[in-house]
Write a protein that binds this DNA or RNA. Structure first.
Lengths: 128, 128
DNA sequence: CTATTCTTTCCAGTTACTGGAAGGTCAAGA
DNA sequence: TCTTGACCTTCCAGTAACTGGAAAGAATAG
């Protein structure tokens, strides 16, 4: 199966699939003509990565997950650990954004937002 | 004032200050010896950028904000527009993260996280 | 006068692709 | 058979915003 078909089946751009091959994430063998030769298992792995990425896992995390995916005798605890690690990271990021949002919102509220030059937002950013 | 002192006064790493000079964000003149020569206004601008970055504004947004900061006759509406644009972006990102978090959390809950191989997380990622 | 601390430039790496150029391969149609 | 077009290949560059490090010149303290 050529890269175009594999990418199509996995719902990923060809460029991305090629990239995953370059970084040895999902690296199929080559056919005689030099073309990458994907099989059904490769497509499954590509789809797996695609879904993992959609959940916000980094490529490094995808690599670990893929290893566990391939390992029939993994402990589900190992998978869950990665997931919870990721959940914690999501929580932290959300908390950071919420703080930022709240502070910026409070400052923005003070600004009239008219044609006048006086601007509490600028003042705050300037350290007033 | 040399870059080290300016960076110190602005609370930024020297590397970052040099980077800002490279991209013409805060670009001081050069002294005879070739050293960048910062004055008090430059330090203020650096601090301004530092605070803006801390609020999550991109460097591109900082550039716009800096222009407005420098313009005594700006309309506060222009500043507020950037701030609200940024608030909207923050809201969107937070919503995305919240969705991700909820979905992943729901899936993770199904996983026992023990020594067994059966793992609903993997199953979900595999598209089951 | 020297040792240390600055400063300079430039190159590379980070994350996860994405776009584009130049060129090889293959299947179908005239 | 020839050609056209769709596909494949590699490699280079760019994205965002730095950060680390190397090599070399400048300044300063003792």
């Amino acid at each position: 199966m050529k890269i175009g078909d594999a990418a199509n089946a996995a719902g990923l751009p060809v460029k991305t699939v090629r990239y995953y091959a370059d970084i040895d994430l999902v690296a199929p063998p080559r056919a005689d003509n030099g073309y990458r030769d994907y099989d059904a298992a490769d497509v499954k792995r590509l789809s797996f990565v695609g879904r993992s990425r959609a959940f916000g896992f980094s490529v490094a995390e995808c690599r670990r997950l893929l290893t566990l995916y391939d390992d029939d005798s993994r402990a589900s605890a190992d998978v869950k650990a990665i997931a919870e690690e990721h959940l914690a990271a999501l929580d932290q990021k959300m908390a950071e954004l919420a703080t930022l949002r709240a502070e910026l919102s409070a400052i923005a509220k003070e600004c009239k937002g008219d044609a006048g030059a006086r601007c509490p937002i600028i003042d705050h950013l300037a350290g007033a």
